[in-house]
């Protein structure tokens, strides 16, 4: 995959990464919806392919992961798996930071049982309920 270059709304945070694929997923868990207002729309990338600069603020939001945003403008930046295991150091980076969402396509949804009734995204999306996410990843991925 080609390298992607993105930035937050105010431009203070800059991210460079090589995405794992051209796929985008949205997570509708309570935290991701409250965080972004919609659900976290993210592109996966390995930790060693990412460079982040700027006033990044992080918060440990569960025993699996931390979330990061721009301290200056509040742009959602990424979800980072901190727990040991097969998903360790995976990043799920906000697609909106990149031009045309980095050329990715929305292909899947997590926590579909938490999606509000007022909206949904079109397409043949692979969905996982909270129970399926927990069974597959032993927590949030």
């Amino acid at each position: 995959m080609n390298q992607l270059n993105g930035q937050c709304l105010c431009g203070a945070c800059k991210i460079t990464m090589t995405p794992a694929s051209n796929e985008m997923h949205i997570c509708y868990c309570d935290m991701c919806r409250a965080w972004t207002g919609v659900g976290m729309m993210a592109i996966q990338a390995a930790g060693d392919s990412i460079t982040v600069e700027g006033p990044v603020k992080t918060r440990t939001t569960s025993e699996w992961a931390e979330r990061a945003w721009c301290d200056d403008c509040g742009s959602a930046l990424y979800y980072h798996v901190t727990a040991e295991g097969p998903y360790h150091d995976n990043y799920h980076v906000a697609s909106g930071l990149f031009p045309n969402a980095g050329g990715t396509k929305l292909v899947g949804e997590l926590f579909t049982d938490k999606r509000p009734s007022g909206y949904a995204f079109a397409g043949d999306l692979k969905g996982m309920t909270e129970a399926e996410v927990m069974a597959t990843f032993g927590g949030e991925p």
Binding site: L9, I26, T36, G37, V38, M41, A76, A94, G96
Partner: peptide
């Protein structure tokens, strides 16, 4: 683009 960057892809308000 500002809303895309702020809210991970699209803003709903």
């Amino acid at each position: 683009k500002m809303c895309q960057r702020w809210s991970s892809g699209v803003f709903m308000g």
